[in-house]
């Protein structure tokens, strides 16, 4: 029983991390229909910022990591702007290209070996309740993830910019005709996703402290899968999808016999295929794709 609860705790920890990444991806998809494969490189940029500022105090490091992630997000928005009227396939391939370009820039600048980030490592310690070890970073991930989701939900429901984002997400052309400043809305979505990328980088840096050119890449892949599994058309469903992928990864890892864990990804993605065959619009969406995507 203790082992099962421990697995649940570990699953929640990974799920929270993927959920945050899924939230950042879902925000941009909502307003622009763009699946940003290069989101992982925004996370990587924030991680390298934490690495390069390791001599500064924590507060300043956090601020700089957020600033760099937001700046890179804005550069991406600038690059992707001409693609707003392009086909989804064109947009996706472009984000692939940007992703690989930025990864190679990181290889040239920093090499492939990696370097320890050294960021809030105390949060990786655990406290124990009834034989269950809970890392502080798990709690922080849940709290931060929940807080961001709540704040973004409030922003979308109760603020002018949120209303405009929803309008742009619903029908970009009509929203523009009605006076919504679409570019401003999209820029705002990219800024928010940049902030989230920095948060993901910080959570990850505590648990996996080596900055490498693929630091964010291996988080974004499962998060992207989670977004699709959960349902691309709603931010909440996409976020929950991200959580589910992380949670399922850990649970499957524990359920599989040790010698079969090499097949973990095969089993996981097999399940993903089954889910998408049964619920092609996503696990947490009802019926056909909805018009409103936020």
């Amino acid at each position: 029983m203790t082992d099962l609860i421990q697995s649940l705790v570990d699953g929640v920890a990974l799920g929270s991390l993927y959920a945050l990444a899924a939230l950042g991806i879902g925000l941009v998809f909502g307003v622009m229909r763009l699946i940003n494969f290069a989101y992982g490189e925004v996370i990587t940029a924030a991680a390298y910022t934490l690495l390069l500022t390791k001599d500064l105090n924590v507060g300043l490091r956090i601020l700089l990591a957020v600033a760099v992630a937001v700046a890179l997000s804005l550069v991406m928005e600038f690059v992707f702007r001409p693609l707003r009227v392009a086909t989804p396939a064109t947009m996706l391939i472009t984000t692939f290209a940007v992703s690989f370009l930025l990864q190679n820039v990181a290889v040239l600048w920093f090499g492939t070996q990696g370097e320890s980030i050294g960021f809030l490592s105390d949060l990786n310690r655990a406290f124990e309740i009834g034989g269950i070890r809970i890392r502080w970073i798990t709690l922080v991930s849940i709290l931060v993830g929940g807080a961001f989701l709540a704040a973004i939900a409030y922003l979308l429901d109760r603020t002018d910019i949120g209303l405009q984002m929803r309008a742009a997400a619903s029908d970009f052309t009509t929203a523009r005709l009605l006076g919504v400043r679409a570019t401003r809305v999209i820029i705002f979505a990219f800024i928010l996703s940049g902030v989230l990328a920095a948060v993901v980088a910080m959570m990850l840096a505590v648990q996996r402290p080596l900055a490498t050119p693929t630091f964010g890449f291996f988080v974004v892949i499962p998060a992207l899968v989670g977004v699709v599994v959960g349902g691309l058309d709603r931010l909440l469903s996409a976020t929950i999808g991200g959580f589910v992928i992380g949670f399922a990864t850990v649970m499957l890892s524990d359920l599989l016999p040790s010698q079969s864990r090499v097949f973990l990804n095969s089993v996981l993605f097999g399940l993903v295929i089954v889910v998408l065959l049964v619920k092609p619009n996503g696990l947490f969406l009802r019926g056909a794709a909805t018009a409103e995507r936020l």
Partner: peptide
């Protein structure tokens, strides 16, 4: 024997 595959995200568990 505890097994994982690098980058599969399960190192915490």
């Amino acid at each position: 024997t505890e097994e994982f595959t690098g980058f599969d995200g399960t190192i915490g568990s």
